[in-house]
Write a protein that binds this DNA or RNA. Structure first.
Lengths: 165, 165
DNA sequence: TCCTACTGGTTGACGTGTCATCCATATCCT
DNA sequence: AGGATATGGATGACACGTCAACCAGTAGGA
């Protein structure tokens, strides 16, 4: 989200813990990078292979799992998606022939998601170019130490997001 | 986008420039942080003030501009949004009474966007809490040097995204 | 002047994400 | 066994973003 965060006119007086200049600039840069990077990655993937980033994520997850058949909730957990989101997305992917469903013998409520040949084909063609784009746009632009710091930052922020303050 | 990027089963052979382990882990962490952070920020803003991050961005932009009336394309440029996206979003915001339109005397095609009292009210109430959340979730979790590095990384990647290779 | 090309902005279709709700099956408890 | 409750998952309504097409007004020539 490109979102500037601060208006010079908005009363800073009311809020003791505003961000300082460095933080503000870093935040804006982060937001801008985020917006453009994800847009660009999405466009590239879409143009090259007709997949969305979401499709890609699901397909990789399927490819990665032994047997290549996964229960829906297991998938949701692996992707860290809400089950409703996943359900909608799987419906769309099924419509496009990328995945299929199989009944679960143990639990009549449940369903297995399986990769179709088309799905496998799509991901195998998409992955290398996508990785190349990521490398090109991100990792070729930053140093090894910066990679390390990025990882650390993300991990710290994630910890706060997941395990409270 | 939570997107794992690599399947151990996917043929690495076909692609000479895969990512190494550090890069891969950093990338995953970044994606995960991103997904959770924006979701959380959005939820907080929505719950606290009924605004979306997109609403917030537009309102701040309006608050910040002299005269508090901006041409649509100017707004699009400031936000770095596609004009179609902005047009849709402004329509929704207008429906909710957050902004209004005025005719442009110089150019009969154009329109000015202005902040309504409700819009001003909303942003003034939303901003401090939103800033607090950002500070809490991000800047309280990382060191000054990390802030600096984050800024540098974002700037470098943005440069690549904007001015080609 | 009139024809063309451009610009500011909107619209429609469609994919995506969230929330709340719902349904059928499992499970648990007595 | 049988009823409360939990779980796996789907659905509907709606906000959001993108793409492509469109439309009205403006400018630039010939």
């Amino acid at each position: 989200m490109t979102c500037q965060l601060f208006s010079s006119k908005l009363a800073r007086v009311t809020e003791p813990r505003w961000l300082d200049d460095r933080e503000q600039r870093a935040w804006r840069a982060y937001l801008a990078m985020n917006a453009k990077l994800s847009a660009q990655l999405h466009r590239q993937l879409q143009a090259d292979s007709g997949l969305s980033l979401a499709d890609f994520a699901v397909l990789v997850q399927l490819t990665d799992s032994p047997e290549e058949r996964v229960r829906v909730l297991e998938l949701a957990q692996a992707l860290q998606w809400e089950k409703s989101r996943l359900s909608h997305h799987l419906a769309r992917m099924q419509r496009r022939g990328l995945i299929a469903r199989e009944d679960c013998p143990n639990d009549a409520r449940g369903a297995f998601i399986v990769l179709t040949p088309q799905g496998r084909d799509a991901i195998e063609r998409a992955a290398p170019r996508h990785v190349n784009t990521v490398r090109d746009l991100v990792f070729d632009q930053i140093t090894t130490e910066q990679v390390q710091t990025l990882h650390t930052i993300a991990t710290q922020v994630l910890a706060r997001l997941e395990h409270g303050p």
